[in-house]
Design a binder for these strands. Structure first.
Length: 246
DNA sequence: TAGGCCATCTGGTCCT
DNA sequence: AGGACCAGATGGCCTA
């Protein structure tokens, strides 16, 4: 059951709840009674307090409920904070990620970043190694194009992740996906399966990462990974398989 | 109307 | 003892 305040908050996960006497509406007490009837099991910290009067028991129960509400609100706030840093379009017209989707997406995001970091380390090591060899050989060496530098795989993967997320959640990114397989109606939340770990997340993207180049979101502070801006080096192709199969 | 998602209440358990 | 955390139950809202 929703509290009166909860039902007016447009499904916000973190409603600003002001607990006052009116908050405990008859509806809430009806629910409380039901729950009490249902859970008449022996035990229960509050129920087993013969030393307290009925009024005290009720006050204690309200206090505990309030704490629990606050705890859940804090949890939801943290969840909102997590949503904010996810590569996912946000805005008033965009339905926010569900909790489960947020967690799954976050996990994949972390995995992708970790993988990209490893790849960056490798490439940096290779570059330094080559430079050392080159210095000794006095031979001219082609300079890596920016598109081939280590950040590329990270950004490329971000595009896949973001585009896929948008596809399954229908949250419009800055570019609009036109891929028929990923088109969904607005306001449909992402299915957990798409963000899960047992199947390639976005098969169409894995098949042809270049196809959706124009539908990607560009992230501030990151090199644009879309194929319109950069070619896809073979070394990063494996990243598209990085996902949920763990 | 069914199903998904969510907020809330509640009792139980664990920790300080 | 009190608080945090957890899981089950319930009902509301929303979308397909």
């Amino acid at each position: 059951m929703d509290s009166d305040t909860g039902s007016t908050c447009s499904r916000s996960s973190s409603p600003d709840l002001v607990v006052d006497s009116s908050f405990f509406s008859s509806k809430m007490f009806q629910q409380a009674e039901k729950n009490s009837d249902r859970s008449l099991s022996p035990g229960g910290k509050i129920r087993n307090r013969p030393d307290l009067s009925k009024a005290d028991l009720q006050e204690l129960r309200l206090k505990v409920n309030s704490r629990e509400r606050k705890r859940m609100h804090d949890l939801n706030q943290a969840m909102d904070g997590l949503r904010e840093v996810m590569p996912y379009a946000q805005g008033p017209s965009v339905r926010k990620l569900s909790k489960i989707s947020t967690l799954l997406l976050a996990r994949n995001y972390i995995l992708m970043l970790s993988s990209s970091l490893e790849e960056m380390k490798k490439l940096v090591g290779e570059v330094y190694g080559s430079n050392v060899a080159q210095t000794h050989a006095h031979a001219p060496r082609p300079v890596l194009a920016p598109a081939q530098l280590p950040l590329h795989p990270l950004a490329q993967s971000l595009h896949s992740l973001a585009a896929g997320t948008a596809a399954v959640s229908s949250a419009p990114l800055q570019h609009t996906s036109t891929h028929p397989a990923t088109a969904q109606t607005p306001h449909s939340p992402p299915a957990a399966g798409y963000l899960g770990f047992h199947a390639p997340p976005f098969p169409s993207l894995l098949k042809d990462p270049l196809q959706l180049a124009g539908s990607y979101r560009h992230f501030p502070g990151m090199p644009c990974p879309c194929s319109l801006c950069q070619p896809l080096p073979a070394s990063t192709a494996s990243l598209h398989g990085l996902s949920m199969s763990k």
